[in-house]
Design a binder for these strands. Structure first.
Lengths: 190, 190
DNA sequence: GGATGTGAAGTCGTTCACAGCT
DNA sequence: AGCTGTGAACGACTTCACATCC
Protein backbone atom coordinates (compact mmCIF):
# COMPACT_ATOMS: atom_id res chain seq x y z
CA UNK A 1 0.00 0.00 0.00
CA UNK A 2 2.81 2.39 0.82
CA UNK A 3 4.47 1.67 -2.50
CA UNK A 4 1.13 2.14 -4.20
CA UNK A 5 0.95 5.63 -2.75
CA UNK A 6 -2.03 4.99 -0.48
CA UNK A 7 -1.98 7.37 2.46
CA UNK A 8 -4.76 6.06 4.67
CA UNK A 9 -6.33 2.67 5.21
CA UNK A 10 -9.39 1.58 7.20
CA UNK A 11 -9.75 -1.53 9.31
CA UNK A 12 -12.34 -2.68 6.80
CA UNK A 13 -9.86 -2.48 3.93
CA UNK A 14 -7.20 -4.31 5.91
CA UNK A 15 -9.78 -6.92 6.87
CA UNK A 16 -10.66 -7.51 3.23
CA UNK A 17 -7.07 -8.05 2.24
CA UNK A 18 -6.47 -10.45 5.11
CA UNK A 19 -9.82 -12.19 4.78
CA UNK A 20 -10.74 -11.50 8.40
CA UNK A 21 -13.28 -9.45 10.31
CA UNK A 22 -12.76 -5.67 10.64
CA UNK A 23 -13.28 -5.74 14.40
CA UNK A 24 -10.54 -8.32 14.58
CA UNK A 25 -8.11 -5.96 12.92
CA UNK A 26 -8.98 -3.13 15.27
CA UNK A 27 -8.83 -5.31 18.40
CA UNK A 28 -5.50 -6.78 17.43
CA UNK A 29 -3.95 -3.40 16.75
CA UNK A 30 -5.56 -1.82 19.81
CA UNK A 31 -3.91 -4.51 21.93
CA UNK A 32 -0.58 -2.81 21.30
CA UNK A 33 -1.77 0.80 21.49
CA UNK A 34 -3.81 3.40 19.64
CA UNK A 35 -2.60 3.72 16.09
CA UNK A 36 -5.68 4.91 14.22
CA UNK A 37 -7.58 8.16 13.97
CA UNK A 38 -11.31 8.05 14.57
CA UNK A 39 -13.34 9.00 11.57
CA UNK A 40 -10.31 8.56 9.34
CA UNK A 41 -8.48 5.27 9.60
CA UNK A 42 -4.81 4.41 9.90
CA UNK A 43 -2.03 6.33 8.20
CA UNK A 44 -0.31 3.69 6.08
CA UNK A 45 3.20 4.94 6.71
CA UNK A 46 2.78 5.30 10.46
CA UNK A 47 1.02 1.95 10.79
CA UNK A 48 3.74 0.17 8.88
CA UNK A 49 6.34 1.74 11.08
CA UNK A 50 4.43 0.90 14.25
CA UNK A 51 3.85 -2.72 13.22
CA UNK A 52 7.52 -3.12 12.44
CA UNK A 53 8.39 -1.75 15.84
CA UNK A 54 5.91 -4.07 17.57
CA UNK A 55 7.29 -7.11 15.77
CA UNK A 56 10.86 -6.10 16.49
CA UNK A 57 11.69 -5.50 12.84
CA UNK A 58 13.07 -2.00 13.33
CA UNK A 59 16.57 -3.40 13.49
CA UNK A 60 18.83 -5.68 11.49
CA UNK A 61 18.70 -9.30 12.61
CA UNK A 62 22.03 -11.02 12.19
CA UNK A 63 21.85 -14.73 11.49
CA UNK A 64 24.12 -17.75 11.24
CA UNK A 65 23.46 -20.61 8.86
CA UNK A 66 24.59 -24.05 9.90
CA UNK A 67 24.71 -26.85 7.33
CA UNK A 68 25.66 -25.95 3.77
CA UNK A 69 23.75 -28.56 1.82
CA UNK A 70 21.25 -27.91 -0.93
CA UNK A 71 18.79 -26.12 1.29
CA UNK A 72 21.47 -24.15 3.12
CA UNK A 73 22.95 -22.94 -0.15
CA UNK A 74 19.51 -21.90 -1.32
CA UNK A 75 18.93 -19.85 1.82
CA UNK A 76 22.35 -18.19 1.48
CA UNK A 77 21.21 -16.69 -1.77
CA UNK A 78 17.62 -16.09 -0.74
CA UNK A 79 16.97 -12.53 -1.79
CA UNK A 80 13.85 -11.84 0.24
CA UNK A 81 15.86 -11.87 3.47
CA UNK A 82 17.74 -8.73 2.51
CA UNK A 83 14.61 -6.72 1.84
CA UNK A 84 13.38 -7.58 5.29
CA UNK A 85 16.37 -6.70 7.41
CA UNK A 86 17.51 -10.27 7.90
CA UNK A 87 21.14 -10.91 7.16
CA UNK A 88 23.15 -14.11 7.14
CA UNK A 89 26.50 -12.96 8.48
CA UNK A 90 28.12 -16.34 8.97
CA UNK A 91 27.88 -19.84 7.52
CA UNK A 92 29.10 -23.02 9.17
CA UNK A 93 29.59 -26.62 8.22
CA UNK A 94 31.44 -29.62 9.51
CA UNK A 95 33.58 -29.63 6.38
CA UNK A 96 34.11 -26.03 5.25
CA UNK A 97 36.82 -26.55 2.59
CA UNK A 98 34.58 -28.87 0.66
CA UNK A 99 31.69 -26.50 0.52
CA UNK A 100 33.46 -23.21 -0.13
CA UNK A 101 33.98 -23.91 -3.79
CA UNK A 102 30.43 -25.00 -4.25
CA UNK A 103 28.88 -22.02 -2.56
CA UNK A 104 31.10 -19.52 -4.35
CA UNK A 105 30.34 -21.12 -7.64
CA UNK A 106 26.64 -20.84 -7.07
CA UNK A 107 26.56 -17.32 -5.74
CA UNK A 108 29.31 -15.73 -7.70
CA UNK A 109 30.42 -13.86 -4.63
CA UNK A 110 32.69 -14.76 -1.75
CA UNK A 111 30.92 -16.59 1.06
CA UNK A 112 32.84 -17.44 4.14
CA UNK A 113 32.11 -20.95 5.36
CA UNK A 114 33.63 -21.66 8.75
CA UNK A 115 34.08 -24.84 10.72
CA UNK A 116 31.24 -25.52 13.06
CA UNK A 117 33.58 -25.44 16.06
CA UNK A 118 33.97 -21.70 15.69
CA UNK A 119 30.31 -20.87 16.26
CA UNK A 120 30.61 -19.55 19.78
CA UNK A 121 33.55 -17.29 19.03
CA UNK A 122 32.05 -15.93 15.81
CA UNK A 123 28.59 -15.52 17.33
CA UNK A 124 29.99 -13.09 19.87
CA UNK A 125 32.17 -11.24 17.36
CA UNK A 126 29.36 -10.77 14.85
CA UNK A 127 26.52 -10.31 17.32
CA UNK A 128 24.50 -13.21 15.94
CA UNK A 129 21.02 -13.60 17.40
CA UNK A 130 19.37 -16.21 15.17
CA UNK A 131 20.60 -19.57 13.93
CA UNK A 132 19.25 -21.37 10.87
CA UNK A 133 19.67 -25.13 11.10
CA UNK A 134 19.85 -26.82 7.70
CA UNK A 135 21.85 -29.89 8.65
CA UNK A 136 20.74 -33.49 8.29
CA UNK A 137 18.23 -34.47 11.00
CA UNK A 138 20.81 -36.52 12.88
CA UNK A 139 22.95 -33.46 13.52
CA UNK A 140 20.22 -30.95 14.33
CA UNK A 141 20.01 -31.37 18.11
CA UNK A 142 23.79 -31.27 18.41
CA UNK A 143 23.94 -28.05 16.44
CA UNK A 144 21.12 -26.63 18.56
CA UNK A 145 23.17 -27.38 21.65
CA UNK A 146 26.07 -25.45 20.17
CA UNK A 147 23.78 -22.52 19.40
CA UNK A 148 22.48 -22.53 22.96
CA UNK A 149 26.05 -22.61 24.25
CA UNK A 150 26.82 -19.64 22.02
CA UNK A 151 23.80 -17.87 23.52
CA UNK A 152 22.07 -17.56 20.17
CA UNK A 153 18.54 -17.33 21.49
CA UNK A 154 16.51 -17.82 18.33
CA UNK A 155 16.56 -20.93 16.14
CA UNK A 156 14.85 -21.54 12.84
CA UNK A 157 14.98 -25.28 12.33
CA UNK A 158 14.59 -26.83 8.90
CA UNK A 159 15.67 -30.34 9.91
CA UNK A 160 12.68 -32.66 10.28
CA UNK A 161 13.21 -33.47 13.94
CA UNK A 162 11.93 -32.02 17.19
CA UNK A 163 14.57 -29.89 18.90
CA UNK A 164 14.74 -29.20 22.61
CA UNK A 165 16.23 -26.05 24.08
CA UNK A 166 16.27 -24.51 27.59
CA UNK A 167 13.90 -21.78 28.74
CA UNK A 168 14.71 -18.43 27.26
CA UNK A 169 15.50 -19.91 23.87
CA UNK A 170 13.02 -20.07 21.02
CA UNK A 171 12.74 -22.65 18.26
CA UNK A 172 10.54 -22.26 15.19
CA UNK A 173 10.29 -25.22 12.88
CA UNK A 174 9.84 -25.29 9.12
CA UNK A 175 8.73 -28.81 8.33
CA UNK A 176 7.96 -29.12 4.64
CA UNK A 177 6.32 -32.49 4.98
CA UNK A 178 4.06 -31.31 7.81
CA UNK A 179 2.78 -28.52 5.60
CA UNK A 180 2.27 -31.02 2.80
CA UNK A 181 0.39 -33.27 5.22
CA UNK A 182 -1.92 -30.36 5.89
CA UNK A 183 -2.40 -29.83 2.16
CA UNK A 184 -2.99 -33.55 1.62
CA UNK A 185 -5.68 -33.55 4.31
CA UNK A 186 -7.48 -30.60 2.74
CA UNK A 187 -7.30 -32.21 -0.71
CA UNK A 188 -8.56 -35.53 0.63
CA UNK A 189 -11.77 -34.02 1.96
CA UNK A 190 -13.07 -32.32 -1.20
CA UNK B 1 7.42 -45.06 18.72
CA UNK B 2 6.71 -47.81 16.21
CA UNK B 3 10.39 -47.99 15.31
CA UNK B 4 11.23 -48.02 19.02
CA UNK B 5 9.11 -51.13 19.38
CA UNK B 6 6.45 -49.58 21.59
CA UNK B 7 3.17 -51.42 21.21
CA UNK B 8 0.74 -49.24 23.15
CA UNK B 9 0.59 -45.56 23.98
CA UNK B 10 -1.71 -43.56 26.27
CA UNK B 11 -3.17 -40.15 25.60
CA UNK B 12 -1.04 -38.90 28.50
CA UNK B 13 2.16 -40.07 26.82
CA UNK B 14 1.16 -38.52 23.52
CA UNK B 15 0.24 -35.32 25.31
CA UNK B 16 3.67 -35.15 26.91
CA UNK B 17 5.45 -35.51 23.62
CA UNK B 18 3.29 -32.88 21.98
CA UNK B 19 3.26 -30.55 24.96
CA UNK B 20 -0.52 -30.45 25.12
CA UNK B 21 -3.27 -31.62 27.45
CA UNK B 22 -4.20 -35.32 27.49
CA UNK B 23 -7.90 -34.58 27.12
CA UNK B 24 -7.04 -32.60 24.03
CA UNK B 25 -5.42 -35.63 22.46
CA UNK B 26 -8.42 -37.82 23.22
CA UNK B 27 -10.95 -35.26 21.99
CA UNK B 28 -9.08 -34.67 18.77
CA UNK B 29 -8.78 -38.36 18.01
CA UNK B 30 -12.36 -39.08 19.08
CA UNK B 31 -13.51 -36.48 16.57
CA UNK B 32 -12.60 -38.90 13.80
CA UNK B 33 -13.73 -42.12 15.46
CA UNK B 34 -12.88 -44.49 18.30
CA UNK B 35 -9.30 -45.60 18.05
CA UNK B 36 -8.40 -46.41 21.62
CA UNK B 37 -9.19 -49.20 24.03
CA UNK B 38 -10.47 -48.24 27.46
CA UNK B 39 -8.18 -49.23 30.24
CA UNK B 40 -5.35 -49.79 27.77
CA UNK B 41 -4.59 -46.93 25.43
CA UNK B 42 -3.95 -46.82 21.71
CA UNK B 43 -2.14 -49.49 19.75
CA UNK B 44 0.78 -47.63 18.17
CA UNK B 45 0.63 -49.42 14.86
CA UNK B 46 -3.12 -49.09 14.44
CA UNK B 47 -3.13 -45.46 15.51
CA UNK B 48 -0.38 -44.58 13.07
CA UNK B 49 -2.30 -46.28 10.32
CA UNK B 50 -5.54 -44.58 11.25
CA UNK B 51 -3.96 -41.14 11.46
CA UNK B 52 -2.37 -41.60 8.06
CA UNK B 53 -5.71 -42.59 6.64
CA UNK B 54 -7.42 -39.58 8.23
CA UNK B 55 -4.80 -37.20 6.84
CA UNK B 56 -4.95 -38.78 3.43
CA UNK B 57 -1.41 -40.12 3.60
CA UNK B 58 -2.30 -43.69 2.73
CA UNK B 59 -1.42 -43.03 -0.87
CA UNK B 60 1.42 -41.60 -2.91
CA UNK B 61 1.07 -37.91 -3.64
CA UNK B 62 2.52 -36.97 -6.98
CA UNK B 63 3.93 -33.47 -7.24
CA UNK B 64 5.26 -31.06 -9.83
CA UNK B 65 7.97 -28.54 -9.07
CA UNK B 66 7.92 -25.27 -10.97
CA UNK B 67 10.96 -23.02 -10.90
CA UNK B 68 14.38 -24.66 -10.81
CA UNK B 69 16.38 -22.07 -8.90
CA UNK B 70 18.36 -22.64 -5.74
CA UNK B 71 15.34 -23.50 -3.64
CA UNK B 72 13.76 -25.64 -6.32
CA UNK B 73 16.94 -27.65 -6.74
CA UNK B 74 17.13 -28.13 -3.00
CA UNK B 75 13.59 -29.49 -2.89
CA UNK B 76 14.29 -31.84 -5.81
CA UNK B 77 16.86 -33.59 -3.69
CA UNK B 78 14.98 -33.27 -0.41
CA UNK B 79 15.11 -36.73 1.05
CA UNK B 80 12.38 -36.42 3.63
CA UNK B 81 9.73 -36.31 0.90
CA UNK B 82 10.41 -39.86 -0.14
CA UNK B 83 9.97 -41.30 3.32
CA UNK B 84 6.58 -39.66 3.52
CA UNK B 85 5.03 -40.77 0.26
CA UNK B 86 5.53 -37.46 -1.51
CA UNK B 87 7.14 -37.71 -4.89
CA UNK B 88 8.23 -35.03 -7.32
CA UNK B 89 7.42 -36.62 -10.66
CA UNK B 90 7.99 -33.60 -12.88
CA UNK B 91 10.03 -30.41 -12.84
CA UNK B 92 9.36 -27.33 -14.94
CA UNK B 93 11.12 -24.11 -15.75
CA UNK B 94 10.88 -21.39 -18.33
CA UNK B 95 14.32 -22.32 -19.61
CA UNK B 96 14.82 -26.09 -19.25
CA UNK B 97 18.03 -26.53 -21.26
CA UNK B 98 19.86 -24.15 -18.99
CA UNK B 99 18.88 -25.90 -15.82
CA UNK B 100 19.19 -29.53 -16.85
CA UNK B 101 22.95 -29.59 -16.51
CA UNK B 102 22.84 -27.90 -13.19
CA UNK B 103 20.27 -30.19 -11.68
CA UNK B 104 21.91 -33.32 -12.94
CA UNK B 105 25.24 -32.19 -11.65
CA UNK B 106 23.80 -31.63 -8.21
CA UNK B 107 21.81 -34.80 -7.90
CA UNK B 108 23.94 -37.23 -9.80
CA UNK B 109 20.85 -38.76 -11.32
CA UNK B 110 18.78 -37.85 -14.33
CA UNK B 111 16.12 -35.27 -13.64
CA UNK B 112 13.81 -34.29 -16.38
CA UNK B 113 13.22 -30.56 -16.55
CA UNK B 114 10.46 -29.64 -18.94
CA UNK B 115 9.32 -26.36 -20.38
CA UNK B 116 6.61 -24.75 -18.35
CA UNK B 117 4.24 -24.80 -21.32
CA UNK B 118 3.90 -28.56 -20.99
CA UNK B 119 2.41 -28.51 -17.50
CA UNK B 120 -1.16 -29.27 -18.45
CA UNK B 121 -0.28 -32.18 -20.70
CA UNK B 122 2.20 -33.71 -18.25
CA UNK B 123 -0.07 -33.15 -15.25
CA UNK B 124 -2.68 -35.37 -16.82
CA UNK B 125 -0.20 -38.01 -17.99
CA UNK B 126 1.49 -38.30 -14.61
CA UNK B 127 -1.55 -37.76 -12.43
CA UNK B 128 -0.09 -34.77 -10.63
CA UNK B 129 -2.13 -33.45 -7.73
CA UNK B 130 0.18 -30.96 -6.02
CA UNK B 131 2.32 -28.15 -7.43
CA UNK B 132 5.32 -26.63 -5.67
CA UNK B 133 5.95 -23.04 -6.73
CA UNK B 134 9.58 -22.00 -6.35
CA UNK B 135 9.71 -19.30 -9.00
CA UNK B 136 10.57 -15.65 -8.41
CA UNK B 137 7.64 -13.76 -6.84
CA UNK B 138 6.82 -11.99 -10.09
CA UNK B 139 6.02 -15.30 -11.81
CA UNK B 140 4.15 -17.03 -8.99
CA UNK B 141 0.59 -15.97 -9.79
CA UNK B 142 1.09 -16.79 -13.46
CA UNK B 143 2.34 -20.24 -12.59
CA UNK B 144 -0.56 -20.70 -10.19
CA UNK B 145 -2.94 -19.89 -13.04
CA UNK B 146 -1.29 -22.59 -15.14
CA UNK B 147 -1.63 -25.07 -12.28
CA UNK B 148 -5.31 -24.23 -11.94
CA UNK B 149 -5.78 -24.67 -15.66
CA UNK B 150 -4.09 -28.07 -15.37
CA UNK B 151 -6.53 -28.91 -12.58
CA UNK B 152 -3.76 -29.39 -10.05
CA UNK B 153 -5.81 -28.67 -6.95
CA UNK B 154 -3.11 -28.30 -4.30
CA UNK B 155 -0.39 -25.65 -4.33
CA UNK B 156 2.54 -25.25 -1.97
CA UNK B 157 3.80 -21.75 -2.60
CA UNK B 158 7.33 -20.72 -1.62
CA UNK B 159 7.29 -17.40 -3.46
CA UNK B 160 6.79 -14.49 -1.06
CA UNK B 161 3.56 -13.23 -2.60
CA UNK B 162 -0.10 -13.86 -1.95
CA UNK B 163 -1.62 -16.16 -4.54
CA UNK B 164 -5.27 -16.25 -5.52
CA UNK B 165 -7.01 -19.37 -6.79
CA UNK B 166 -10.66 -20.31 -7.45
CA UNK B 167 -12.81 -22.26 -5.01
CA UNK B 168 -11.91 -25.92 -4.89
CA UNK B 169 -8.20 -25.20 -5.06
CA UNK B 170 -5.98 -24.99 -2.00
CA UNK B 171 -2.87 -22.89 -1.48
CA UNK B 172 -0.49 -23.30 1.45
CA UNK B 173 2.29 -20.76 1.78
CA UNK B 174 5.79 -21.21 3.11
CA UNK B 175 7.03 -17.70 3.80
CA UNK B 176 10.46 -17.86 5.39
CA UNK B 177 10.49 -14.21 6.35
CA UNK B 178 7.07 -14.43 7.99
CA UNK B 179 8.33 -17.22 10.21
CA UNK B 180 11.40 -15.16 10.97
CA UNK B 181 9.14 -12.20 11.84
CA UNK B 182 7.44 -14.45 14.33
CA UNK B 183 10.78 -15.46 15.80
CA UNK B 184 11.94 -11.83 15.90
CA UNK B 185 8.80 -10.87 17.82
CA UNK B 186 9.33 -13.58 20.39
CA UNK B 187 12.98 -12.62 20.81
CA UNK B 188 12.12 -8.94 21.15
CA UNK B 189 9.87 -9.55 24.13
CA UNK B 190 12.26 -11.34 26.51
C1' DG C 1 -7.72 -51.21 37.77
C1' DG C 2 -7.05 -48.07 34.42
C1' DA C 3 -7.41 -45.39 30.31
C1' DT C 4 -10.75 -43.99 26.92
C1' DG C 5 -14.71 -41.18 25.31
C1' DT C 6 -17.58 -37.38 26.42
C1' DG C 7 -21.05 -34.17 28.71
C1' DA C 8 -20.36 -30.09 31.48
C1' DA C 9 -17.63 -26.28 32.99
C1' DG C 10 -14.33 -23.15 32.07
C1' DT C 11 -11.38 -20.27 29.31
C1' DC C 12 -10.10 -17.88 25.42
C1' DG C 13 -10.75 -15.52 21.16
C1' DT C 14 -14.09 -13.39 17.89
C1' DT C 15 -17.81 -10.46 16.57
C1' DC C 16 -21.29 -7.12 17.59
C1' DA C 17 -22.72 -2.66 18.48
C1' DC C 18 -22.07 1.73 19.89
C1' DA C 19 -19.81 5.50 22.56
C1' DG C 20 -16.20 8.62 21.66
C1' DC C 21 -13.16 11.32 18.68
C1' DT C 22 -11.66 13.78 14.64
C1' DA D 1 -20.39 11.97 8.99
C1' DG D 2 -17.31 8.35 9.63
C1' DC D 3 -14.08 5.23 11.63
C1' DT D 4 -11.70 3.91 15.69
C1' DG D 5 -11.49 1.77 20.29
C1' DT D 6 -13.90 -1.16 23.43
C1' DG D 7 -17.43 -3.22 26.75
C1' DA D 8 -20.68 -6.79 26.16
C1' DA D 9 -22.53 -10.82 23.75
C1' DC D 10 -21.36 -14.56 21.44
C1' DG D 11 -19.11 -18.64 19.82
C1' DA D 12 -15.37 -21.87 19.78
C1' DC D 13 -11.96 -24.38 21.78
C1' DT D 14 -9.81 -26.44 26.03
C1' DT D 15 -9.90 -28.69 30.26
C1' DC D 16 -12.19 -31.05 33.88
C1' DA D 17 -14.31 -34.91 35.75
C1' DC D 18 -16.44 -39.06 35.54
C1' DA D 19 -19.34 -42.74 33.47
C1' DT D 20 -18.06 -46.38 30.48
C1' DC D 21 -15.88 -50.16 28.91
C1' DC D 22 -11.78 -53.38 28.26
Amino acid sequence: MEQGGEKVVSSAQLANRCMVNAAQVRKDLAYFGEFGIRGVGYYVKDLLHDIKRILGLNKEWRMALIGIGNLGSALLSYKDFLKQNYKIVAAFDIDPPKVIGRVSEKLGKPVEVLHISRIKEVARERKIEIGLITTPPSEAQGVANLLVDAEIRGILNFAPVQIIVPDGYVVKNVFFTTILDNLAYLLSNE
